[in-house]
C-alpha cells in the first residue's frame, strides 16, 4: 500500500525489522494479556458468568437471552435504521432537487435547510421530535435520523452532481431536454451511482446513530443490554456488554465491507483515462467519508 515510503529491505534491514516486529509484537501482545488479566482479577469475566449465553440463571433460557439480544435489541436497531434510511434517502433526493433548481427562492431555502440541519447534533433533533413535536419515541428517533441524514445525503448527491463533467448537462440541453429532464435522466442517475459508496458509509453512520435512541428511551440493543443487566445482576454487565458490542461491530463492519466492495467494482467499471482518474478521486473522497 504505502511501501513506496521505504526501500525493499536488504538482509541487514530485514533482520532489523524482524527483530523490531518481534519486539513490538510481543509488547502489544503483553499489553493485551495484561489488560485481560486485570479485568479477570475483578471477576467480571469468570467462566460461570458466560453461562448467561448457554444456561442462564433465574429460570430464563438461553433462547430468551438470544431472542432479547437479536430480535428485540438488534431488531429494533435495524428497524429504526431501515425506516430512517429509506425516508432520509427520499427526503435527501427532494432536497438536492430543490438545491439544484434555477429559481433563487427555491434554491436558497433548500441550501439553508441543508446547512442548518447538517450542523445540529442528531440527539438534539430526536429530542426535539419527542418533546417539541410530541412524537412517540420510535417516531422521534426516526425523525432525528431522517432530518439530519437527509441533509447530509442531499449534500453527498450535490457533490456527486457537481463532480460530473459539464459536457453531460450541456449534451442534455443540446438535444433539447428541459432542466428537470436533464437532472432526472442524466445527472442524478450518474451521481447516485458515483456516490453509492459514500451513501452506504452514511448509512453505517445512520445505523450507529440509532444507538442515540438509548438516551431518549428507545428500546434498542443498548437498552436491552441495560435491561438484561438489571435482570441478571450488575456482575453480568461486562459479559453482556462484550457480546452487545460485538454484534454492533459485526453488523457495521459487514456494511462497511459492502461499501468498499462497491467502490472497487465501481472503479473497475469506469476503466480508462480521465474517467478512471475521476473515479479514483471519488474513491479517495469516499474512503474518508464516514463522518464520526
Amino acid at each position: 500500500m504505502s511501501s513506496v515510503l521505504y526501500d525493499t529491505p536488504g538482509p541487514r534491514a530485514r533482520r532489523r525489522s524482524l527483530i523490531g516486529s518481534v519486539v513490538t509484537g510481543i509488547a502489544i501482545a503483553a499489553l493485551l494479556v495484561f489488560i485481560v488479566f486485570r479485568v479477570a482479577e475483578t471477576g467480571r469475566i469468570d467462566a460461570e458468568l458466560w453461562q448467561v449465553y448457554t444456561d442462564p440463571p433465574k429460570g430464563s433460557s438461553a433462547a430468551d437471552v438470544w431472542t432479547s439480544l437479536l430480535i428485540n435489541g438488534l431488531g429494533a436497531t435495524l428497524r429504526a435504521a431501515a425506516v430512517g434510511g429509506v425516508l432520509a434517502l427520499a427526503v435527501g433526493l427532494v432536497l438536492v432537487v430543490l438545491r439544484m433548481a434555477k429559481p433563487r427562492w427555491v434554491r436558497y431555502p433548500a441550501t439553508g435547510i441543508i446547512e442548518v440541519f447538517r450542523g445540529l447534533p442528531v440527539i438534539l433533533l430526536m429530542f426535539f421530535g419527542v418533546l417539541g413535536l410530541g412524537m412517540p419515541i420510535f417516531q422521534g428517533v426516526v425523525f432525528g435520523l431522517v432530518v439530519y441524514n437527509a441533509a447530509v445525503i442531499g449534500e453527498i448527491l450535490r457533490a456527486g452532481i457537481v463532480s460530473l463533467p459539464s459536457g453531460q448537462a450541456e449534451a442534455g440541453s443540446a438535444i433539447g431536454l428541459t432542466q428537470p429532464q436533464i437532472l432526472f435522466s442524466i445527472l442524478l442517475p450518474q451521481a447516485i451511482r458515483r456516490m453509492l459508496p459514500s451513501l452506504i458509509s452514511q448509512f453505517v453512520v445512520l445505523l450507529k446513530d440509532t444507538s442515540l435512541g438509548f438516551i431518549i428511551g428507545y428500546t434498542e440493543l443498548l437498552r436491552i443490554l441495560r435491561i438484561n443487566t438489571e435482570f441478571f445482576g450488575e456482575s453480568y454487565l461486562f459479559v453482556l456488554f462484550f457480546v452487545g458490542a460485538a454484534i454492533y461491530i459485526a453488523v457495521n463492519f459487514l456494511l462497511s465491507r459492502v461499501a468498499i466492495w462497491l467502490e472497487r467494482r465501481g472503479s473497475m467499471k469506469a476503466a480508462g483515462g480521465a474517467v478512471h482518474a475521476d473515479a479514483e478521486h471519488a474513491e479517495a473522497h469516499a474512503e474518508g467519508e464516514q463522518k464520526p
Binding site: I215, F241, Y248, P292
Partner: peptide, 15 residues
C-alpha cells in the same frame, strides 16, 4: 469506527 459513540460512552460510564 464501526462502534457507535453511544456504546463507547456506555463502556466508560457503566462498564
Amino acid at each position: 469506527r464501526n462502534t457507535p459513540l453511544t456504546l463507547v460512552f456506555f463502556f466508560f460510564v457503566f462498564v
